[in-house]
Design a protein around this nucleic acid. Structure first.
Length: 365
DNA sequence: AATCCGGGGCA
DNA sequence: TGCCCAGGATT
């Protein structure tokens, strides 16, 4: 029972699995059709969400022939709400292909399986191991996470080379005589124990886990932060009156907190201000009589996580117009403003418009 | 190598 | 809100 030539990871994993295995319907069979169906349903889908779909689909399409001969619209109706609908189209394609080209018998090797529409490295390994006992390790989100933590692998799991590297590691761990057991085990382990928020306190592998040893659980798996690249639309107005301009210090948790800037109106929606005509809709009423001229400005300012679309205008406020109290803003002379911290975007905006008298050739640096 | 495809659970 | 889920196809 206890093969002592297993890697300690594998030994601990299988022992854990014997006590914690989930009872899932697709584990009660070795029918490649049912297994394939379950794996496609579960692609990027939680077990709890996919389970009822799997049961219903297997009830409506009990055999691959019934699926192959079904109207695709019927399949889509049953896939409704599950998402990633190309899965359903590829499912139907593969069903017809297996019936017509393989006499209804699923191909039995990883290399043949991965040729099927909608069957990639993960699904091919899953079918090959679960239905045919081939020693191919499944490498899904769970496996990336578990191996990265246990072995302290620093490779970015989103990098193109990551799959091969993790597959190679898993290949050294998977027992050739029970690959299905190992693959089922590692996914249950990822779901129940080494989950995104792991239960290290009760984990039988924690003492040999690099991430746990180094107290760096939060560091693994390494995954490049998704550059949100939120689009924002900044409309700056250089309000000038009596050789002073209206500025404020940015505060709070937004970008550039602590830096200073001109009067800013941010278009909240994805509506850029295209013309002066639209300005009237957004500008405070007290500015309707001011002389407004468009300025040259950086069109786009890129941050790591934001893409700022910028437009700017110069506003000559008449001397007799009192706009002394605009919330958060204050009037300041160019000499004083020069001493305050500003974003690169604002510096570029200034540099682009040094011809303005208010800057008086005194602004840069 | 980068993007797109989705709905849902959870901190 | 952002992250993640039994990933794969497309460009």
């Amino acid at each position: 029972m206890q093969s002592t030539n297993h890697h300690p990871f594998t030994e601990g994993l299988l022992t854990w699995y014997h006590q914690h295995a989930r009872e899932l319907p697709w584990r009660q069979t070795r029918d490649p059709y049912a297994i394939w169906l379950s794996e496609v349903v579960l692609q990027q889908t939680r077990v709890a969400q996919g389970l009822p779909y799997y049961l219903k689909l297997l009830e409506v399409f009990p055999t691959i022939e019934s699926l192959a001969h079904a109207d695709e619209s019927v399949l889509f109706r049953h896939w409704q709400g599950l998402g990633y609908y190309s899965r359903a189209r590829n499912l139907h394609k593969t069903a017809k292909l297996v019936v017509s080209e393989y006499q209804g018998q699923f191909p039995s090797t990883y290399e043949a399986l991965i040729q099927l529409p909608g069957v990639g490295p993960y699904t091919a390994a899953a079918i090959a191991s679960f239905a045919f006992g081939e020693a191919k390790p499944v490498v899904d989100g769970n496996v990336f996470r578990i191996l990265a933590r246990y072995f302290g692998i620093e490779t970015d799991i989103l990098h193109s080379s990551a799959r091969k590297e993790f597959t190679d590691v898993a290949l050294e761990l998977i027992p050739k005589d029970q690959p299905a057991e190992f693959n089922q085990a590692i996914m249950d382990f990822g779901s129940l124990q080494c989950s995104p928020a792991p239960l290290c306190a009760s984990c039988p592998l924690s003492l040999t886990c690099i991430a746990f040893q180094q107290k760096r659980i939060q560091d693994f798996p390494v995954k490049q932060k998704k550059a949100k690249q939120r689009n924002r639309y900044f409309n700056y107005f250089i309000l000038e009156q009596g050789n002073k301009m209206l500025v404020r210090e940015r505060k709070g948790k937004d970008i550039w907190s602590g830096l200073w800037e001109f009067y800013l109106l941010e278009s909240s929606q994805e509506e850029e201000l295209e013309s002066l005509v639209e300005l009237d809709k957004i500008l405070p009423k007290f500015l309707h009589d001011a002389v407004i001229q468009p300025l040259k400005s950086p069109k786009i300012h890129l941050l790591s996580h934001q893409k700022i679309h910028c437009k700017a205008w110069h506003v000559q406020v008449p001397d007799n117009l009192d706009i002394s109290h605009v919330e958060d803003f204050q009037w300041i002379g160019p000499e004083d403003f020069e001493k305050l911290g500003k974003s690169v975007l604002l510096l570029n905006l200034i540099t682009d418009n040094l011809h303005l008298e208010i800057f008086n050739d005194s602004m840069p640096r």
